[in-house]
Amino acid sequence: MVIDAHQHFWQYDPIRDAWIDDSMQVIRGDFFPEHLEPVLAANGVHGCVAVQADQSENETAFLLDLADKYPFIKGVVGWTDLRHPAVREHLAAYATHPKLKGFRHIVQGEPDNNFLLGDEFCRGIAALADFGFSYDILVYPKQLTATAAFVKKFPDHRFVIDHVAKPDFKTGALDEWAAHMRHIAQSPNVYCKLSGLVTEADWQHWQPEHFEPFLDVVLDCFGPNRLMFGSDWPVCLLAAEYSEVKEIITRYINKLSTSEQNNIMGGNAISFYHL
Results as ranks from 00 to 15, higher is better:
E120R: 15
F31W: 08
P14W: 00
T258L: 14
H8I: 08
D119S: 00
D136Q: 13
E37F: 15
S195Q: 08
D30V: 05
F211W: 00
M1I: 12
D202M: 12
K246R: 10
K193L: 07
K74Q: 13
L66Y: 15
V245I: 09
A240S: 13
L197A: 11
P213D: 07
C122Q: 07
E260D: 15
D220W: 14
D21F: 00
E247S: 04
I106S: 08
Y12W: 12
L256T: 04
E110P: 05
H210G: 01
F169T: 06
R28S: 06
Q11L: 14
K246E: 04
L66W: 10
L116I: 03
E244G: 13
S243W: 04
G132Y: 10
I137S: 12
A61D: 09
Q143I: 04
V49I: 15
H163M: 13
E176H: 15
E260L: 08
A129V: 12
H35Y: 13
D30K: 00
I264H: 12
I137V: 14
I253P: 06
L82V: 03
E57A: 07
Y70Q: 11
I264E: 03
V217N: 08
M265H: 10
D81C: 01
H97V: 05
D175R: 15
L174M: 13
N263L: 15
G132F: 08
Q11A: 08
V198A: 09
K153G: 00
H97W: 13
C236P: 02
N254Y: 14
L63Q: 05
V164H: 01
D220S: 13
V26Y: 12
K74S: 10
K69I: 01
P14M: 09
M24W: 01
L66H: 06
L117V: 06
N225E: 12
Q143M: 06
Q261D: 11
L100I: 07
D168Y: 00
Q25I: 09
R251H: 11
F150L: 05
N254K: 12
R182F: 10
A146V: 05
D65G: 15
K74E: 10
E37W: 14
Y242D: 03
A42V: 02
Y252R: 13
R251S: 09
L36W: 13
N262C: 04
V51L: 07
A129M: 02
V87Y: 08
A185F: 10
D81N: 15
L194F: 08
A92T: 05
D22F: 00
G266D: 03
D54H: 14
A127L: 03
A239Q: 04
P33G: 10
N58V: 01
I264N: 02
K74P: 03
H163V: 06
I125L: 04
A5N: 09
Q261H: 04
K166R: 04
N113D: 13
D30H: 03
E209I: 12
K142M: 00
R104P: 05
M181K: 02
H205K: 07
I106T: 10
S56A: 06
I184G: 08
L36C: 13
K193A: 07
I106M: 15
